[in-house]
Every structure is written in C-alpha cells, then in structure tokens.
Design a protein around this nucleic acid. Sequence first.
DNA 1: GTCTATAGTATGATAGAC
DNA 2: GTCTATCATACTATAGAC
Lengths: 184, 184
Amino acid sequence: MSKDNVITQLSQVFRQYGYEGTSLSKISEATGLGRASLYHYFPKGKQEMAATVLDHIYSALEKDLLTPLQGDGKPADRIRAMCQTVREFYNSGRSSCFLDILSIGDAQTLFQSPIRRTLNAWLNTLTQVLSEAGLDPESARHQAENAIIQIQGALVLSRCLGNTDPFERVIENLPETLGMGSGE
Amino acid sequence: MSKDNVITQLSQVFRQYGYEGTSLSKISEATGLGRASLYHYFPKGKQEMAATVLDHIYSALEKDLLTPLQGDGKPADRIRAMCQTVREFYNSGRSSCFLDILSIGDAQTLFQSPIRRTLNAWLNTLTQVLSEAGLDPESARHQAENAIIQIQGALVLSRCLGNTDPFERVIENLPETLGMGSGE
DNA sequence: GTCTATAGTATGATAGAC
DNA sequence: GTCTATCATACTATAGAC
C-alpha cells in the first residue's frame, strides 16, 4: 500500500466526516490497514493525517486549477476549464469541500493557516484572470470572491438537500455570472 | 436554569463544533450544568439535544424570517428586512449555519429530514415572494436558491478567512442581486 | 433539578513481535 | 511495513443520593 494511495483514501473519510467525526477506526476500515499501521505513515497521528491531506489539496489545486488558469488561452476559456475541473473535483456536488469541512470546531484552529493559504491562492489567481479579462481591480477581486462563494454555497445546498441540481446549475452558469458568456 | 436557556447555550456549542465535535463536557461547561443534569432535560441524550436545537431553529426561522416575508409590504422591502434578520442571525458572518454544520458526517443521516424541512420552508417562501415581485415560477425558484447559495457560500468563505467582509458584502448586495435594487 | 459515582465503550496513541 | 496487545484518556449514558 503506497502512501499516496493511503492519502487518497484518508481524504475521502475526512471530507465526509470532518476532522472530529473521523476516527482512526473509520480510516482503518477505509484503507484496510490496522489502526497501528497508520502510525507508520503518520507518526504524529491524526493531526498529521489531516495536515497531509490539506497539503495534497493545495498541490492538486495548484496543478489542476491554478496552473491552467494562468495559461495563455482566452480568459473566458480558462474560466470554463476551471468550472469543469471544479465539477469533477466535487464529484458533481456529491462531495463536500475540505475547506468547509476542516474549518469547523477545533480543526479551524489547527488548520487555519493551510486553509487560508489554499483559499487565498485560488482567490488571487482568479482575481488575476478576471483582471486580464478587463475588470478593474476591485471588481475582479469581488467577482473572484463571488465565484468561490457560489461554489461553496451550492455545495452546502446540494449536500443539505441531497440533490446535485443546485451545484450543477451554478457551475453551468458560472462563466456568464462572471461576465464571460461566450466571447472574451 | 430554564430549558429555553439551556437550548440557547446548547445551540452555540453545536454551531461552533458540529455534532461529533460537541461533547457533553463542552455542553456542561457552556451551560454550567453537570453532565448528568443534561439528561434531566434531554433523556435521550446528545441526539435529542441536537434534534431540539434544530426544532428551535425551525421555529425561529418561521417566526423571524418566514412570517415577515409573507407580510403585506412591498416584496423588495420584505427582502431587505430578511437580509437584516439574516445578518443578525449569523452574527454578521461570525457564526456558522446550523444546516451546514449539522449536514456533515453521521449527523447528515440523523438529521436530514429536519434540515431539509427547514431549508425547503425557506426556499419555498422566498420563491413565493419573488413570484409576487413579478418573476416567472422557474426564475423565482432559481433566484431563491441563489439567495441561499450566496448566504451559505459567504458564511463558509468568511469562516475560512476569519474575515466578515465577504458576508457583509453579500448581504448588502443581496437585494439588488435578486433584482430589487430600490423600487418594487 | 442537580449532584457524585460509575458503568461500558470508543478514542488516539505506543510497544514490541514478526 | 503490518500486526497483536495494551495504555491512558475521553466519551455517552445510567443509577441513585440529596
């Protein structure tokens, strides 16, 4: 069992149950490893597991979202590509966001710096793209925030209702919401 | 110590720590009651405590939000009143939403029906008001969803960033986002 | 109505065999 | 690298005194 494989399984448990709701027993069951075996990969225990997950999230964000967003296509095309990646990442609205989940309770204090780092990276990159598309700095920043607000809100609504329609609709309409319906 | 008083304290703990992150010790500390004393008010224990909180949320929503929304003023005025109530309820973005928090992990299964009941009541009432304002049924429903999506998303963003600005901005702009800037 | 005491279980973590 | 066995602690919940 490779560490990357373990982290992937780990992530799904944390994202579903949250930090305090995730027990080593649940992780043990999900990975097939005994509770004690997990300490081979994560000597500092549960806290290190969640921190590692957040680290992987940041890397994935950078690789699959931020780098493409900084590409050289039309801004509108890059935004559309982002929407597709976002849809896949959140499993069409069936999976929650780690940043939402891991910003609750004691986890908020424990992981606020990686959470803010990740969120700010996304916000800043989006702001830059929207600036390139012609928005003034303040509007660009606000629209970047609006995009993430809509994604997060749609995830919450879809989770509460047990229905992916709100998420799908938000993702579908996000490009034109940001003022890039078809052209640049 | 009245039961209503206990419920108020309870709510703050659940909303901050989530269902699994809330221990009877934390509740005991917040209320000043011994762990065992809590069973006098809630014989079925922790699960009944959270269920009671959700029940209170529903009542508060109905009384402070839905009834005013169904009043006889202009739709735009009623929406603006809702925004002010929402701002107070979420403590200007410093407090999380119970529906977000209690839809995670095992709590999702335990409380999905009161959560959906509450959310649908809000959505349906908002849809009705937006219909009165002249929107066709489909648009009214979508705009109602959009309002709640923006509120929930802004709460998540503000919580993650430790900054109430996004929430404040969303609430400020919500009326015009819904197409009722100043007039009808 | 609130308490002390405690039962029974689950938790995160460690030691050490293989 | 994975395991069994175990520790110390925290948890939810209950019994019963006052």
